[in-house]
Computed example of a mutant assay.
Amino acid sequence: MPDGAGEALVTPAPGCEMDEVRLRWGEGQARFSVEIADDAAERSQGLMHRKSMARSAGMLFIYPKPGHVSFWMRNTLIPLDMIFLDERGVVQRVHSNAIPLDETPISGGPGIFAVLEINGGLARAFGIAPGAQMLHPAFGSAAAWPCAGAGG
């Protein structure tokens, strides 16, 4: 059924849920439980004022359309890795260990549709790098790793 924005709502395949992301690359995979920030207020608040976050958790920022996005760490108390993805769910850039409370802009570059924030150092520890693919319903049927192929 249409959601009012002209897009059809799709029931996620098993293993493809709104509150979870999976990443795959070469021989590696990772899974994180995520909070979704998909409107201006949620994206503005982000992970500010939190003193900790579970190792397996993160926040997925989703934008209405691909563009140039930039983040900073104002009022953010924990170091974060920022994983910038295009509209197909392919990692374009990873910024490691963003410094708490630093207001220096962190650019994801052009064509960014989503950003995954996880605890600082985890991207490197797992081996998440440009070219990795994310499984999440936000990327739709044109995703590099579409939900329809999520089984198993």
Rank of each mutant, 00 (worst) to 15 (best):
A13Q: 14
A13M: 12
A13S: 15
G15L: 10
C16N: 13
M18K: 07
V21Q: 07
V21K: 05
R22V: 15
R22C: 11
R22I: 15
L23S: 06
L23Y: 09
R24Q: 14
Q29D: 10
A30I: 02
A30P: 04
R31V: 15
F32R: 01
E35W: 06
I36Y: 01
D39N: 15
A41S: 14
E42H: 10
E42P: 13
R43E: 03
S44I: 10
Q45V: 10
G46R: 00
M48D: 11
R50D: 14
R50G: 12
M53F: 12
A54E: 13
R55T: 15
S56I: 08
S56V: 11
A57M: 13
G58I: 03
M59N: 04
F61A: 04
P64K: 05
P66A: 12
F71H: 01
W72T: 03
W72I: 04
M73K: 02
R74M: 04
R74Q: 08
T76Y: 02
P79E: 09
M82W: 07
M82Y: 10
I83G: 00
I83N: 01
D86F: 02
R88Q: 09
V91D: 05
V91Y: 03
Q92W: 08
R93E: 06
S96N: 13
A98D: 09
I99G: 07
L101I: 12
E103F: 00
E103W: 01
T104L: 07
I106C: 01
G108A: 03
P110K: 02
I112A: 01
V115C: 05
V115Q: 02
